[in-house]
């Protein structure tokens, strides 16, 4: 009797991979073979053991952190792509211009001017949008919404119907203190998603030393993400400095180590090593991971100051 074949079937049944006919075959064999029946029981125990011993599922918190970091990394990726595109666009234009493209562009330009002209006539020559009585029932315009990126979708000469698409942007003013959840969410969003680095920088500056105690973990994660991945060194530095106001913990340690190991800006690496030194002064001893990083930095960092600092710390530790 070929027991190996049945053992395979037993294993497959434990994995829920047996079809009905094989299952039937196995059942028949188990009823007459004690050896395989014993193996079948062991297989069941083994399966139970695997289930009760390993249940690592990612927590919501971990998923949230991963998403925040991914957003920042994607923004960096998009800005890289835009820079590349901007670089190659003139070259592409130079080599790739064809008369059809030129004609198409001219037609679009003409259509744009024509629409602008008609819109001007329709909405009143001297009137601004707010004064135009024709637009009084146009709620969007009345409520002070800014219109950008207008495009013509349809311009039918026969019916005279014109269709547009546009972005309607409304400015919203929000005030509140740092313990206001909405304010915190906006700051987090701005640190991670705002395109303008100046705005990202200002958003970080809004978190005062006193406010640190009031903010939730999302802002801390956003600062850690910005310190590690923001493409602008000014923003990375501001985020790194702001993290010094937070109580030192494992994720802040990881941020310092990440910057120390990966940031191309030596000023930021110095800030990171200083952050570790400060944490040590506050009573957090250097663990193995920190010591390994410092060992690497003591020999391979291109900046002499960082090498010396790392050696000094290692000298004090040993």
């Amino acid at each position: 009797m070929n027991h190996d074949k049945y053992r395979e079937l037993i294993e497959l049944s434990g994995m829920d991979e047996l079809n009905t006919s094989d299952m039937e075959l196995l059942k028949q064999h188990l009823s007459i073979c004690k050896e395989c029946d014993l193996f079948y029981e062991e297989e069941k125990k083994f399966k139970e053991l695997l289930i009760c011993g390993k249940t690592t599922e990612p927590s919501d918190e971990l998923l949230k952190e991963a998403r925040l970091e991914l957003r920042a990394a994607l923004r960096l990726e998009r800005s890289k792509q835009n820079r590349l595109q901007n670089f190659f666009e003139p070259v592409k234009d130079f080599f790739g211009l064809q008369y059809k493209t030129v004609l198409n562009s001219a037609a679009f330009l003409f259509a744009g001017i024509a629409v602008g002209y008609f819109a001007f006539i329709i909405f009143g020559q001297e009137a601004s949008f707010e004064n135009a009585t024709e637009l009084d029932d146009f709620a969007l315009l009345k409520s002070g919404i800014q219109i950008n990126n207008m495009r013509i979708v349809k311009d039918s000469e026969k019916s005279g119907e014109i269709e547009f698409t546009f972005d309607a942007v409304k400015q919203v003013r929000l005030s509140g203190s740092m313990d206001d959840e909405r304010i915190q969410k906006l700051i987090t969003y701005s640190i991670l998603n705002e395109k303008n680095p100046g705005v990202r920088l200002n958003s970080i500056s809004l978190i005062s030393d006193k406010a640190v105690r009031k903010v939730d973990n999302d802002i801390k994660i956003a600062l850690e993400t910005a310190a590690k991945y923001d493409e602008n060194p000014g923003v990375r530095r501001e985020a790194l400095l702001k993290l010094k106001d937070f109580p030192f913990d494992g994720t802040i340690k990881q941020t310092y180590l990440h910057v120390l190991m990966n940031d191309e800006n030596s000023g930021l690496r110095i800030e990171a090593i200083n952050g570790l030194i400060e944490a040590n002064k506050q009573g957090h001893s250097f663990d193995n991971e920190m010591i390994e990083t410092l060992k690497a930095k003591s020999t391979n960092d291109e900046n002499n100051y960082i090498q010396i600092k790392a050696r000094t710390i290692l000298g004090e530790v040993y």
């Binding site: 971990l62 952190e65 991963a66 991914l70 990726e77």
Partner: peptide, 17 residues
């Protein structure tokens, strides 16, 4: 967890590209 987050990010950046 940290390694898993690194891989997560790498995966979606690869997907994006």
């Amino acid at each position: 967890e940290d390694d898993a987050k690194d891989v997560y990010q790498e995966v979606f950046i690869r997907v994006y590209k």
